[in-house]
Design a protein around this nucleic acid. Structure first.
Length: 638
RNA sequence: GCCGACGUAGCUCAGCCGGUAGAGCAGCUGAUUCGUAAUCAGCAGGCCAGCGGUUCGAAUCCGCUCGUCGGCUCCA
């Protein structure tokens, strides 16, 4: 007799060891149909495997997020199955589930997206056949025999240390796999192959390069459609396209990975920084500026020469070696060390909008998101050990405030000591604990990334979430106990003795270039009024009204609004269309009526048009919207 | 850096198996003077990313270089 406890506390008894399938069927036929796997005392099991002991179970149905992962894993197998049929000499390696789907790394002839349709066609055939997917436990020796002509699988099996080795079979296809899987291929209804790229075996550039084929799968056709729609939407918002269309920035072959910001882009840039300075001043920061070319001796002292050299641009001046700075910190150290400090001066919050250059691999460059020259909204905070918590907490609170202004949510991740690092164990221990306790104090949940810290210290990474729910790492807070040491930084304590200050590096926008790109996609090019490069455009209805429009424009400009007049001899409709496509938040048409009555007709980006606004109520609303840095496109809502 | 795809007018893109470059939008000129998302007509614009090769002949085929995109890796 086997007793099975269900999540609701009910206990069902079975004569023989029941399978998940049988348990589901004992409740209802429909449930049995939708059950993908079963969770037995925390382990996930295939539905057709018998449960031979009393257990607490939970059925995983197609509604569960876990089911999607299981099915996508099965979809990876399905794709591998199809590929092995189409490409005879394909050698499989690994095929995991990833965030939006799955991939499989396969040693085979290079494929392109044009080949997807024939693979997908083969996959569809296999789905129709509803091939049962069955687990088979075998010995290591059997596994090695089976894969004697498969070097990658052989290597994987040899690396397996924890007991059981299982195969999954579907029709004429067998794959080494831990499982679980959906019961048969018919569960994998809506899928699509999405992209292909090269990927090294074991992520090692010295090992063979494989074909990594990506795909995604859903239980419901509607979900797949929705996902594809999301991809379309993301494509439409692509900041490279918008940057070109809105005349914000450009890239040129003469400076790969180094953006040129146009006049309109600079308006946004300057508004971002003005806001940043306002917040930082209020939070007790002072601003500094350090040079971008510094002597090699400095980089040797800071440890960059040893640890970061491959990313640094080096140049020779008067027979001396110099490097263009990839980080601002060593300069910041010199600045701190340039005069003595008292404990009364601490914490010293020394900010710098620093231009850094990093020689990134050519293949990783990507619009504003990944560049070789960028500005960091950096700050180095020097403090006494008992100020650590409060300072980090302060940074987190400032970050929350600033991201909130843009309507961006965020989550936190703590990264610990990496393999390649400087400093002692004690230093790392203390630094990591400092960050951890500040996080606890802040109270928001956080994730831990072991070994992901910078070479000079542990860090808290702040990941924002944009309007399309995509996440981006922007802010980071890094505790550094090594640089103050290397630069022999000191402050005089109340005991009149020299003490070593603790330092943190932190950024909030991160890279201003990248943050700019993220905002561009987040707002889909429709920047809120306070950020819009052109805030007001005046559209005279005919040429006679151009002088009056200019008069108004003059007034607006005096009031510090960024304003333009479209004085072209074009139809009103065309001017409106173009202003709308340029995402100008306040589109004012100027005709005889407005001139006579002294009123304004305003179209906002939500498509609303209001006539007969008097100047005073217009300015009240507009300046209120700007002062509060509101992000709504509707400006004159009741 | 590696793998794959791509690079034609300011932009978006055509250009079949090699015969000497084409459209729409933008620009310019002229006409139109317009009330909430494209008025009409004409004109001009290209060393087909660069270099080399194959060929009687190359945007088209081949090689190299540069750049862009998607990944790998890395990271703000």
């Amino acid at each position: 007799m086997i007793n099975i406890t269900l999540p609701d506390g009910n206990i069902k008894s079975f004569e023989n060891s029941p399978t998940g399938q049988e348990i589901a069927r004992s409740i209802s036929e429909g449930l049995a149909r939708d059950t993908v796997a079963v969770k037995v005392n925390g382990d996930t099991l295939d539905v057709y495997l018998p449960i031979d002991h009393d257990a607490e179970i939970r059925l995983i149905t197609t509604k569960d997020p876990e089911a999607l992962e299981i099915m996508r894993h099965s979809a990876a197998h399905l794709m591998a199955h199809a590929i092995c049929r189409v490409y005879k000499d394909a050698h499989l390696t690994i095929g995991p589930v990833v965030e939006d789907g799955f991939y499989y790394d396969i040693d085979m002839e290079p494929v392109s997206e044009e080949d997807f349709s024939k693979i997908e066609a083969e996959m569809k055939k296999l789905v129709k056949e509803k091939l049962p997917i069955r687990r088979k436990v075998i010995t290591k020796k059997e596994a090695l025999d089976f894969y004697k002509d498969e070097p990658f699988k052989t290597e994987m099996i040899q690396d397996l240390t924890d007991g059981t080795i299982s195969f999954y079979e579907q029709g004429d296809f067998t794959d080494l796999c831990r499982g679980p899987h959906v019961p048969h291929t018919g569960f994998i209804k809506s899928f699509k192959l999405t992209k292909v790229s090269g990927a090294y075996w074991r992520a090692d550039p010295n090992r063979p390069q494989l074909q990594r084929i990506y795909g995604t799968a859903f239980f419901d056709k509607k979900d797949l459609k929705e996902y594809l729609h999301f991809l379309e939407e993301a494509k439409k918002r692509n900041h490279r396209k918008l940057g070109e269309a809105l005349d914000l920035f450009s890239f040129h072959d003469e400076a790969p990975g180094m953006p040129f910001f146009h006049a309109r882009g600079m308006e946004i840039w300057n508004a971002l920084l003005a806001y940043w300075r306002e917040e930082h001043r209020a939070a007790g920061y002072v601003e500094s500026k350090t040079p971008i070319i510094l002597n090699r001796a400095l980089w040797e002292k800071s440890g960059h020469w040893e640890n970061y050299r491959e990313n640094m641009y080096v140049t020779k001046i008067d027979e001396e070696e110099y490097s263009i700075k990839p980080m601002n910190c060593p300069g910041g150290m010199l600045l701190y060390a340039s005069r003595p400090h008292s404990y009364r001066d601490l914490p010293l919050r020394q900010a710098e909008i620093g231009l850094v250059h990093r020689h990134e691999l050519s293949g990783v460059l990507s619009g504003l998101f990944r560049v070789r020259a960028f500005h960091q909204d950096d700050a180095h905070i020097f403090m006494t050990p008992d100020q650590i918590e409060a300072e980090i907490l302060g940074v987190l609170q400032l970050t929350e405030r600033i991201y909130g202004t843009f309507g961006l949510g965020f989550h936190l991740e703590l990264s610990t000591r990496p393999e390649k690092s400087i400093g002692t164990d004690e230093q790392w221990e203390m630094a990591t604990e400092g960050l951890r306790s500040a996080l606890e104090l802040y109270g928001q949940e956080y994730k831990i990334n072991e070994g992901d810290g910078a070479f000079y210290g542990p860090k808290i990474d702040i990941h924002i979430q944009d309007a399309l729910k995509r996440t981006w790492q922007c802010g980071t807070v890094q505790l550094d106990m090594s640089l103050p040491e290397r630069f022999d930084l000191a402050y005089i304590g109340s005991d009149n003795q020299r003490h070593r200050p603790i330092m943190i590096h932190r950024v909030i926008y991160g890279s201003i270039e990248r943050f700019f790109g993220i905002l561009l996609e987040h707002f889909a090019g429709k920047f809120p009024l306070w950020l819009a490069p052109v805030q007001v455009i005046l559209l005279p209805i005919n040429d006679d009204l151009v002088p009056y429009a200019r008069e108004l424009s003059e007034k607006f400009t005096q009031l510090a609004l960024r304003c333009e007049v479209d004085h072209r001899t074009e139809s009103l409709n065309r001017k409106i269309r173009e202003a709308q496509l340029q995402n100008i938040p306040l589109i004012l048409t100027v005709g005889a009526k407005e001139k006579e009555k002294g009123t304004l007709s305003v179209r906002t980006l939500d498509g609303n048009v209001r006539h007969g606004l008097d100047h005073e109520s217009f300015f009240n609303r507009v300046f209120d919207h700007i002062a509060k840095r509101k992000i709504e496109l509707e400006i004159f809502a009741e």
